[in-house]
Computed example of a mutant assay.
Amino acid sequence: MDRLDGIRAFVAVVDAGSFTRAGKRLGISNKLVSKYVAALESHQGITLLNRTTRSLSLTPAGERFLLVARRVLSAVEELDAQARADEGALTGRLFVTAPVSFGEMFIPVLTRDFTEQNPGISIELRLTDRYVDLAAEGFDLALRIGVLGDSSLIARRIGRTESVVVASPGYLEANGWPRHPDELREHVNIRDGNSATSHRATFVIEGKAISVPLPGRITVNSPRAVRRLALEGCGVAVIPRFVVESDIADGSLERLLEGFPGPQLDIQALYLPQPFIPPRLTAYLDHLRRHLGPELGKARPPGS
């Protein structure tokens, strides 16, 4: 057995969660996948996977081996990709993660448009609002919005948006217009649980960044859900502008407190530090920089 076959089979089993699904992903039988993994364990002299009739789990040794295995496969793939890139063709897979609402709104830019221009590239886009460990989970790139914590990842800004305050005409007719950020204390606020400070918002007031409280009874970790509740007149929302741009344009939502800018939100692409940046990753970053910005002001949330 080629050791690379064993490593590919092992990583596929971990990612797919079963030998059967790993076999389908690799185009071989589940029995052959099992044989490859068993041979790899025998060669390494360690048990990588705990197997029961109902589940699979990594052993401690398997968790350590997985990190190295992903790097080995990535390096082999890059050798092939570099050879093809030198001939003018990009090939390989990009494994990308993005926030759910953002990813759903910009699916064409994130996937279709790039793969149409580069037929040798495949993209697997995983939408989740949780923090993703790129190294442990094998991602090439993570897209994140807002202020980032300390990180060893390389960050590249690919776009920018801002937080805006909105409410429906019906809500404002019944409850009045807030004229100053401090007046949000007297309103019902729909809060976005994805924000690290969902109970407060920052505004520029007389040239200074001031944080004000956002009292409210509803907190939901989805900008699309916050938007829907605002459209239904449930309260005032502080929300990324691209989520409600078209609602403001057609009058479904009114923008409030325009004289008090909210914070700028960077949309950033993060990837692991590495001595060699794959050509397909460089090309994808360039694609996002060129095409994402113009789309930020045009997108309308799905299902609207």
Rank of each mutant, 00 (worst) to 15 (best):
residue 135 A to H: 06
residue 232 E to R: 15
residue 138 G to H: 11
residue 149 G to M: 07
residue 1 M to G: 11
residue 60 P to S: 03
residue 74 S to E: 13
residue 178 P to Y: 01
residue 203 F to S: 07
residue 7 I to E: 09
residue 77 E to Y: 06
residue 220 V to A: 05
residue 53 T to Q: 11
residue 301 P to S: 14
residue 8 R to E: 05
residue 150 D to Q: 11
residue 252 S to E: 12
residue 39 A to T: 09
residue 101 S to N: 08
residue 98 A to K: 08
residue 237 A to Y: 05
residue 145 I to C: 04
residue 20 T to E: 15
residue 270 L to W: 02
residue 230 A to Q: 09
residue 217 R to V: 15
residue 89 A to C: 05
residue 50 N to C: 07
residue 165 V to R: 07
residue 268 Q to K: 14
residue 104 E to A: 15
residue 289 R to L: 11
residue 141 L to K: 04
residue 281 L to D: 03
residue 97 T to L: 00
residue 128 T to N: 03
residue 81 A to M: 14
residue 260 F to R: 03
residue 17 G to R: 07
residue 243 V to Q: 03
residue 165 V to K: 03
residue 289 R to S: 08
residue 265 L to A: 10
residue 171 Y to H: 06
residue 117 Q to S: 14
residue 44 Q to C: 05
residue 241 R to S: 10
residue 217 R to Y: 10
residue 103 G to M: 11
residue 6 G to K: 13
residue 53 T to S: 15
residue 300 R to K: 09
residue 167 A to S: 03
residue 212 V to G: 01
residue 18 S to I: 12
residue 282 T to M: 10
residue 15 D to L: 05
residue 33 V to A: 03
residue 242 F to P: 00
residue 275 P to V: 12
residue 268 Q to V: 15
residue 162 E to S: 15
residue 66 L to K: 05
residue 187 H to I: 08
residue 197 T to Y: 14
residue 78 E to K: 13
residue 180 H to K: 07
residue 116 E to V: 15
residue 194 N to Q: 13
residue 93 R to P: 00
residue 96 V to L: 04
residue 243 V to L: 03
residue 144 R to P: 00
residue 277 I to K: 03
residue 71 R to V: 14
residue 43 H to I: 13
residue 96 V to G: 01
residue 303 G to M: 06
residue 114 F to M: 06
residue 212 V to H: 08
residue 71 R to Y: 01
residue 29 S to G: 02
residue 84 R to I: 07
residue 26 L to G: 02
residue 51 R to I: 12
residue 180 H to Q: 05
residue 297 G to S: 11
residue 112 R to G: 06
residue 218 I to M: 12
residue 243 V to G: 00
residue 274 Q to Y: 08
residue 75 A to E: 04
residue 298 K to Y: 08
residue 185 R to A: 14
residue 20 T to H: 15
residue 186 E to A: 08
residue 26 L to R: 09
residue 257 L to S: 06
residue 168 S to D: 01
residue 113 D to R: 11
residue 14 V to R: 12
residue 148 L to V: 04
residue 88 G to R: 06
residue 78 E to I: 06
residue 179 R to H: 14
residue 77 E to T: 14
residue 175 N to T: 13
residue 303 G to T: 09
residue 37 V to T: 09
residue 301 P to D: 07
residue 296 L to Y: 02
residue 111 T to P: 02
residue 100 V to A: 03
residue 98 A to T: 13
residue 254 E to S: 08
residue 291 H to I: 00
residue 98 A to M: 01
residue 119 P to K: 14
residue 234 C to S: 14
residue 148 L to Y: 07
residue 167 A to K: 04
residue 176 G to K: 04
residue 154 I to E: 08
residue 209 A to P: 02
residue 126 R to L: 15
residue 59 T to E: 01
residue 108 P to N: 05
residue 82 Q to P: 00
residue 10 F to M: 03
